[in-house]
Computed example of a mutant assay.
Amino acid sequence: MTTDPENRRTRLVEDAYRLADELLFPAAPEVDRTGVIPAGHWHAIADAGLFGIAAPEESGGPGLEFAQVIEIMEVMTSGCLTTAFTWLQHHGVVIALAGTTNGALRDELFEATTSGRLRAGVAYAGVVPTPPRMRATRVDGGWRFDGYAPFVSGWGIVDLLQVSARDVATDDVIAAILPIEPAPSAIGVTPIHLGAADGTHTVSLKLDGLTVPDDRVVSRVNLDDFFASQNIGVRINGTLPLGLLRRCAALLDISGHTDAARALRERGSVARTRLDEGIPDAALLISARAEAATLALDAAAALVAADGGRGLLRGSHPERLAREAVFTLVAASRPQLKDLLVARFSSG
């Protein structure tokens, strides 16, 4: 007999397919054209419980298997990359709140974020390079954040932002969750207009003496532990190209190119397995991520070729998906990934 928790997990996966096919995909051309994600998308995602998929069962979450979380993320991307990419950032904040030792912050924000009542984004790429772009200096009662975050998605859409910085004294990574409305005067915001997924409302942020009190700090980890945890993030980002492949294959089926669709799905299954196997091995994981990105390009190219001249029309599904496949080459990228992709595309 199926237990209630199992029913809940099954329903979350089923609802992701329903939303992707019935709500997100039909609206994706208009989201792409206008650069605006409808408010109704967020309400529907919240009503389905999909803001809380990363929450563990012991914290009141659904306790999904990692494979189920990955499937939901791929399926949502197959509906609308713009919506899914903005929504994807939210789960990093849910995970941070679930594991924090800051009980007061968790009590304040955990239910609100898992329910989707508050939406969240992240700005952690500033700690990845050495020297870091984002630095934290200890001050009385908290931290001073200074630096630059080049790509932050969801500005004007999310309510909370998790900002990470490296402690100038120890190189530990300090992460804090801040409300961003109204934006603190110490944060300078520069909009960035993207050729694909422009509705993510991506900006660059410059922090100049932003004071963060201790009660907003969600975590402090040493640098090695931070980079070890990034493998999960890279695996999650692998859902973007494989989500696009799902949609390209579905459209190829509709157009009668079933053999092409089957071949792409088989290649996607191999790429998915390699991504999973690479989680404990950063080098293997980056290689698998590069493979998935090139596969998304192949899938979009097959769809454009199958559709012929109509596939070149601005706003058509093939044309949009081709631009979005290019987006997955660089979104949430790493220097090693860029080097691998340059080598792959430049070699014979």
Score class of each variant (00 low, 15 high):
306 A>I: 11
100 T>N: 06
258 T>L: 13
23 L>M: 10
108 E>Y: 11
139 V>F: 07
27 A>F: 14
47 D>P: 01
232 I>Y: 05
284 L>R: 15
5 P>S: 03
277 E>S: 13
240 L>N: 02
230 Q>E: 12
138 R>E: 12
346 S>L: 12
34 T>I: 15
75 V>W: 01
264 L>F: 14
54 A>R: 03
280 P>G: 04
302 A>H: 07
45 I>P: 01
338 K>Q: 07
68 Q>A: 10
62 P>V: 09
276 D>V: 06
262 R>Q: 07
82 T>F: 02
278 G>M: 13
227 F>D: 04
275 L>Q: 03
220 R>P: 11
218 V>T: 01
319 E>K: 14
297 L>P: 00
90 H>A: 12
71 E>R: 09
23 L>Y: 08
123 A>T: 04
307 D>K: 12
50 L>V: 04
50 L>Q: 02
157 I>V: 05
236 I>D: 02
155 W>D: 06
214 D>I: 00
62 P>H: 11
122 V>H: 02
187 I>P: 06
339 D>T: 13
35 G>L: 15
249 A>S: 11
127 V>F: 06
305 A>R: 14
123 A>H: 02
284 L>V: 15
342 V>H: 10
238 G>C: 10
332 A>E: 02
37 I>N: 04
16 A>R: 01
191 P>C: 04
224 D>C: 06
269 S>V: 04
103 G>K: 12
42 W>G: 02
245 L>D: 06
58 E>Q: 13
286 I>G: 01
66 F>P: 06
276 D>N: 05
239 T>R: 01
184 P>V: 00
14 E>H: 02
120 A>C: 14
203 V>R: 06
214 D>K: 10
57 E>F: 12
27 A>V: 15
130 T>K: 13
57 E>W: 14
91 H>V: 08
238 G>V: 09
115 S>M: 14
318 P>M: 00
137 T>D: 15
88 L>Q: 05
281 D>S: 08
20 A>K: 03
182 P>F: 07
320 R>Q: 11
219 S>L: 15
38 P>A: 11
57 E>K: 03
255 S>G: 10
26 P>C: 07
211 T>L: 15
89 Q>G: 14
266 E>T: 05
259 D>F: 12
107 D>N: 13
304 V>W: 04
262 R>V: 00
205 L>W: 09
92 G>Q: 00
336 Q>V: 02
199 G>P: 12
226 F>Q: 09
136 A>T: 02
